[in-house]
Design a protein around this nucleic acid. Structure first.
Length: 496
RNA sequence: CGGGUAGUAGUUCAGCCCGGUUAGAAUGCCUGCUUUGGGAGCAGGAGGUCGUGAGUUCGAAUCUCGCCUACCCGACCA
């Protein structure tokens, strides 16, 4: 079982807290391969909830799932100049297709005779293989739009990795759409951003800022990148999802044209959009505390755990007579409930363990409760517990789950608001940015200025917000560095 | 990828500097009894290719070199 050494507190070493929590809460662990993680059943159960909720939303937008190959011909990557520039440095390459026994010793070696004529790239993203395919699917405006998504793994040879936040291999979904008009594609990219934002806030209880990426931060090959940005408890920003308007870049690179209603041959317009297992990192760093994981009820694999406290079998039977109906009624309401009658661990152990795992609501019932007709109910987000009458407990739990979902969202939003501030001078900026949080400041819109700021402060423009942040109103001003005109404040932060 | 630190039982670590019986502790694990309302107690027990490969040596966890992995700092990161 998990050992019971306390987690390193967040205030002592945030990074260490995160690393320990991921492992101790049984979410994931390091594998034998550098930068590649094993997602454990509990962590994967949460990812499956994320997938299910997103997939439902994608399908409501007309998206259908498909699957494209893991391996991409090397030549495809180089078709779109900016795209290859963005990914070339972090690609894993398959060069051979056979091993053989080592003639001088033990084990196997690469068979040099089995060198591939054209090397294959393990996908870092699938635009190229998908657009080479779309070419065959599209000839008329009647074939459009194409709205495909795939759930898959991708690989980027990252120099520095962290479980969930940046791994060499990760799981994600990538949506790739093809449209007849620019407007339709742009709208679609925006609409998927809204889907992500709604999902993040309602399901994951993570408040996000919707915005546009600056040219420096834009996806390689995109004309425009939209994003949702979240603030972690250490004040750093984390990009939680992106949606790209790709223009006709990939259509031109892969020669994907269609005949319009007007009988004109035109290039197709494209979008792509994705979220990854990085969301697991966002989830952890938004809500969890020094006792362990805190899960939003909407994603918790177990929403309610019931712990009977007993000495002998007949006592357990008496308790279960009361608890089974509660569990059944919760289940009937669609609430994911677990009754833990395991007698191999003490109640105290179980309490601590379920807190570490982030189970939102815990019920406990013992001999005293049995006599009094009561039950103990504890909520993970506030760590409050009270003993209440067993009458009406089901309804109380139902509303408590909703309340927890709302409360952790509000708490995260309050935190973000408290750590978002406007700064007007570059001197002030340099001081403020060290303290973490989102800094709203004016920028002249040039990559040069952004690069200068990054070089001097490590802060980057997380996004140009699409709407005012709560309590702030963005107006035109002058760039804090150059004094040139600025259309409005942008969000700066240190980031993951 | 550069600089630094580390890798010994499932886990956290001691031992290494100064090479030499059978490699230790805590915790976890197993068995039994007693327990069970916040990570229980007692007794007994199992568990280690000392990351890996080479080298030095009569002898290597210990010294040397390569490699692998993790962590920290940089660089990089749609």
């Amino acid at each position: 079982m998990a050992n019971f050494q306390k987690l390193t507190p967040r205030g002592e070493d945030y990074s260490k807290w995160y690393n320990e929590l991921v492992v101790k809460a049984d979410l994931a662990e390091q594998s034998a391969v550098r930068g590649c993680m094993v997602i454990k059943p509990y962590g994967y159960a949460i990812w499956e909830k994320i997938q299910a909720e997103l997939d439902k939303r994608f399908k409501a937008q007309g998206v259908r799932n498909a699957y494209f190959p893991l391996l991409i011909p090397k030549s495809f990557l180089s078709r779109e100049a900016e795209h290859v520039e963005g990914f070339a440095k972090e690609c894993a390459v398959v060069t051979h297709h056979r091993l053989k026994n080592d003639p001088n010793g033990k084990g196997v070696i690469v068979d040099e005779d089995a060198r591939l004529e054209e090397e294959l790239i393990i996908r870092p993203t699938s635009e190229t293989i998908i657009w080479s395919t779309y070419k065959n699917w599209i000839s008329s405006y009647r074939d459009l739009p194409i709205l495909c998504n795939q759930w898959c793994n991708v690989m980027r040879w990252e120099m520095r990795t962290r479980l969930f936040l940046r791994t060499a291999e990760f799981l994600w979904q990538e949506g790739h759409t093809a449209h007849a008009t620019k407007e339709e594609a742009e709208d679609y990219a925006r609409r998927m951003l809204d889907v992500y934002a709604e999902f993040a806030e309602k399901v994951m209880a993570i408040p996000v800022v919707k915005g546009v990426k600056s040219p420096n931060e834009r996806f390689a090959g995109a004309l425009n990148t939209y994003c949702i940005e979240a603030m972690m408890q250490d004040g750093k920003a984390l990009q939680a999802g992106t949606s790209h308007f790709l223009g006709q870049n990939f259509a031109k690179s892969f020669d994907v044209k269609f005949l319009s209603k007007e009988n004109q041959l035109e290039y197709v317009w494209a979008t792509s959009w994705g979220v990854s297992t990085r969301l697991m990192g966002a989830l952890i760093m938004t809500h969890s505390d020094d006792n362990g994981l805190v899960l939003p009820p909407n994603l918790a694999p177990t929403q309610v755990v019931i712990v009977p406290i007993y000495k002998k079998e007949d006592q357990l039977a008496a308790l279960m007579e009361k608890l089974n109906p509660v569990a059944d009624q919760l289940q009937a309401l669609g609430i994911r409930v677990k009754v833990d009658t395991d007698d191999k661990y003490t109640p105290g152990y179980k309490f601590a363990d379920y807190e570490l795992k982030g189970v939102p609501v815990r019920l406990a019932m013992g001999g005293r409760d049995l006599e009094n007709g009561t039950i103990e109910i504890a909520r993970r987000d506030t760590m409050e517990k009270e003993t209440v009458s067993i009458e009406g407990i089901v309804e109380r739990i139902r509303t408590m789950l909703e309340d927890i979902q709302q409360n952790i969202y509000q708490k995260a939003l309050d935190f973000r608001i408290a750590n978002t501030r406007e700064v007007n001078s570059y001197e002030e900026f340099k001081e403020e940015v060290k303290k973490g949080g989102f800094i709203l400041a004016h920028w002249d819109g040039t990559p040069e200025t952004e690069e200068l700021i990054k070089a001097e402060t490590k802060a980057t423009i997380r996004c140009i917000p699409l709407a005012d942040l709560p309590g702030h109103h963005s107006e035109p001003g002058t760039c804090m560095v150059t004094g040139k005109p600025s259309a409005g404040r942008v969000v700066f932060a240190l980031s993951y």
